[in-house]
Design a protein around this nucleic acid. Structure first.
Lengths: 345, 345
DNA sequence: GGCCGACTGGCAATCGGTTGCCGAATCGGC
DNA sequence: GCCGATTCGGCAACCGATTGCCAGTCGGCC
């Protein structure tokens, strides 16, 4: 292949670690660099013939655009940032996968940062990320509304599981899922429910609680909120004492992780799930069907959420193939073993 | 704050979406842009006094370096790529978290790409990623040795769970873990083991099998390999028939996901774990202690692996605080309920 | 008092692309 | 055969930093 390359060209490229530039191609093809840029970047702008010639030269040199050089004049890095609270929370997987794929399909790179559930860390990570991305997805953010609005003024920002006026978001159907779950518990004879709430700054935890209040009220059921708690297995575990004190017959946890923790703690304490206590969660994460009893939960379309979020970023960048739906993501009640008939006490 | 900014400056910055440049700072501080660059980038190079002045101006404008502009002359994007086979595999979490944190701590950004266990997709993702990262971490790569060597010639490449000559890697202690696990099974009276192997291209699956062969041979135990299989829950599930056909008393799966799948399938088929069949895995992922019976497994230090991998990239970039250990990562046998005394048949 | 070296800060080239503008060549139409 | 429109490709400025080189200043030392 490259045995015919002019010596100096070959030498230059070697020194650059094998990375060819449009100048190399221009030289090889005997055209101006700007022509190369156009041939490779604006199909049709250059005559068929020269384009061919340039493409051939580019192939020969194994050319790839230098993304940084490209980003400088255009201001587009072709990179999308995804902030998550906790990478090890399985809820994130689906989102990450969906986001990564649609991003990659559109030629975008996904950058992931973790805030460890800390607003501080999140703010810092976000400002570190912001200059280098074209858009930002905040999944389960703990940032204050004003901060988010400020961010959205600088770059496209998409929220997952959070609503802030004027900022685009991808949301699940909260009411539908909660209503269905409460109906299910009602059918099983439960009259008193405890809700394990997540962090105070979690918008979606608040929404679920409000929906639960509504649904319980409509059915004349008793509900109490226990929390705020850490949205983790440990958070669920630690809540057992307060759950016992409240004596509900069923518990709805803000997420599956907490539900799993509660089931573990209850089982360890000799409380049988579901005969002594029914437990349900949200998200249907990996692990929910592994635990015994398997967890009743409200499944969310996480991967789709990730896809839509990226889609909306692309839309905002005028880079989308087609408009992205604004419909809330449908949820599905998955009934498994952790909820059961209320026992006669 | 900015009520005293010269009008044209304020205007320029507004048009750039609030992002100030060193030129803006230079103008505000009455110095040359190069001086700003030095004041902010090379502590001590500029006099205390002017540096103060420049810092003040930078703060006033809320300045942040433009990473792309910075990357162009230096060739450094301050970005590290992490290729994983499957984001939804919990094994990845630990690695991602460890990698993300050490990267962030060093001022680097982590980019994650997924290959979906496909060599094709991986090769493509890698070449897409390569121009924009300073170094690349391949966790559980399916790429051929030569491809990897080629990559390593262009940018620092670190392998996790894979050895290729001349390429740096982060590896667990394979023999130790396998030996310990086999000893454990031997103690329980098992004389015949089946190994569920992962993808053919998985170096670590091969290594585990070889270590198993050795250990079993030393103890005069029978071993058979079943596979290659998909390294997923389904892969483990689908292996049940072949496991039954081989009639071992214990099964060691290439990873926990497969072990979990096998346990599920066995349980569904009325085979009791561990009294009819002992099952063990590797990695100790989230979910391993959730399943019933809880999984006996060889724990790997995943997060540490991620940290080390990033550390080694930084080392290769002469950007490391201190040298990174080359010691294989210690493994720990976690005995839980899925392995038990062999039953008298 | 003069010379040397250290310290500061400015000038300008450079990284690798993109793009507005312009002129030459080509084409179709009458 | 001429004219205006269109197509094609080159020129050069620009994106926002970094950095080698250089000149001016200053202090110290002989």
């Amino acid at each position: 292949m490259d045995d015919e390359l002019p010596g100096d060209l070959a030498e230059r490229i070697r020194r650059r670690n094998g990375a060819a530039t449009i100048y190399d191609i221009a030289e090889l093809a005997g055209v101006n660099p700007s022509t190369v840029s156009r041939a490779l970047g604006k199909p049709g702008r250059i005559s068929k013939k020269t384009e061919e010639k340039i493409r051939a030269a580019a192939d020969r040199l194994d050319f790839q655009f230098n993304p940084m050089a490209r980003a400088l004049p255009t201001g587009r890095s072709h990179t999308i940032g995804l902030m998550v609270a906790d990478i090890t929370n399985p809820v994130i997987f689906g989102i990450v996968r969906g986001a990564e794929h649609t991003a990659a399909a559109a030629g975008y790179t996904l950058v992931i940062a973790e805030s460890q559930e800390s607003g501080e860390a999140e703010a810092e990570a976000v400002s570190r990320l912001l200059p280098s991305v074209d858009g930002l997805i905040l999944a389960t953010t703990r940032l204050a509304d004003e901060r988010i609005v400020k961010l959205a003024e600088r770059k496209p920002v998409i929220l997952i599981n959070r609503r802030v006026d004027e900022v685009a978001s991808v949301l699940p159907q909260v009411e539908e899922g909660v209503t269905e779950l409460v109906a299910h518990l009602d059918d099983l004879g439960h009259r008193s429910i405890a809700y394990l709430s997540g962090p105070e700054t979690s918008w979606i935890s608040r929404r679920r609680w409000e929906a639960l209040l509504d649904a319980a009220e409509r059915r004349g059921m008793a509900v109490v909120e226990i929390g705020p708690l850490s949205p983790t297995i440990d958070g669920g575990r630690d809540a057992l004492r307060r759950v016992q004190a409240a004596r509900p017959s069923a518990v709805i946890a803000f997420n599956d992780l907490m539900a799993i923790g509660l089931i573990q703690a209850a089982t360890a304490a000799g409380i049988h799930v579901p005969s002594d206590l029914s437990v349900a969660g949200f998200d249907d994460i990996f692990g929910s069907e592994l635990i015994v009893p398997a967890l009743t939960t409200v499944r969310a379309q996480l991967q789709l959420a990730g896809e839509r979020a990226v889609g909306k970023v692309l839309e905002a960048l005028h880079d989308a193939a087609e408009p992205v739906s604004d419909e809330p993501l449908a949820t599905t009640l998955i009934v498994r073993g952790s909820t059961g008939q209320v026992s006669a006490r």
